[in-house]
């Protein structure tokens, strides 16, 4: 019964879930667009606390961005394994992706803590408020992604992904790549372009 979903006819030929995910990601673009605009407007505004250039640790963030990028690679591997119906490798790469994601979030938690110690609190300045809001939202998205990956691992293990396994993995993959791409934008705009 599970496989009927694949065969189910849709007008566009795309599955409902995939189309839905694309639309959701389109909507997310506007969400991050709004947050990034807020940050760009406020990035230099601080009366008491430190300024962007004074606390950013570019080498560290570059490495953590690289780790997140690598996780996109492993996600691709997971999707291709799922397409081959290779449960073992699907699970393996999903797990690796999740761990890489967790490493990234760990790096972000470290960064937040370090910034806070150096005097940039959430309420210190406009820069602080908008920085933490933007990167925090992204961090939450990564975390949700990790939870989705973990859930996928559980589902694959229990052989319980209904419909097409590969498509479900692909959907989570779409989300994961989106989160990665958003990070590239944030990393470039927030960290690299001097304010």
């Amino acid at each position: 019964m599970a496989d009927t979903a694949v065969a189910h006819h849709t007008t566009t030929g795309l599955s409902n879930n995939k189309l839905g995910m694309w639309l959701f990601l389109g909507s997310e673009c506007l969400l991050f667009g709004g947050l990034i605009s807020t940050y760009m407007l406020y990035r230099g505004r601080t009366n008491t606390g430190p300024q962007p250039d004074q606390i950013y640790d570019i080498p560290f963030t570059s490495v953590s961005s690289f780790v997140l990028l690598m996780s996109s690679l492993t996600m691709v591997l997971a999707v291709s394994a799922a397409n081959r119906k290779d449960d073992r490798n699907t699970n393996l790469w999903l797990t690796v992706t999740a761990i890489l994601g967790a490493t990234f979030v760990g790096g972000q938690v470290y960064e937040f803590t370090a910034f806070y110690r150096e005097g940039l609190g959430f309420t210190t300045s406009l820069f602080g408020s908008s920085f933490y809001t933007l990167t925090g939202f992204h961090g939450v998205h990564v975390t949700v992604g990790i939870i989705m990956l973990m859930a996928l691992v559980g589902m694959v293990r229990r052989n319980r992904i209904p419909g097409s396994k590969a498509e479900t993995v692909e959907l989570v993959g779409l989300y994961w790549h989106f989160v990665d791409i958003i990070w590239i934008v944030i990393f470039t705009l927030v960290y690299l372009i001097p304010s």
Partner: peptide, 12 residues
């Protein structure tokens, strides 16, 4: 998840 994330951040 919390253990992994927090451990990483404490180490750094």
């Amino acid at each position: 998840l919390a253990v992994i994330v927090l451990s990483f951040s404490r180490v750094f």
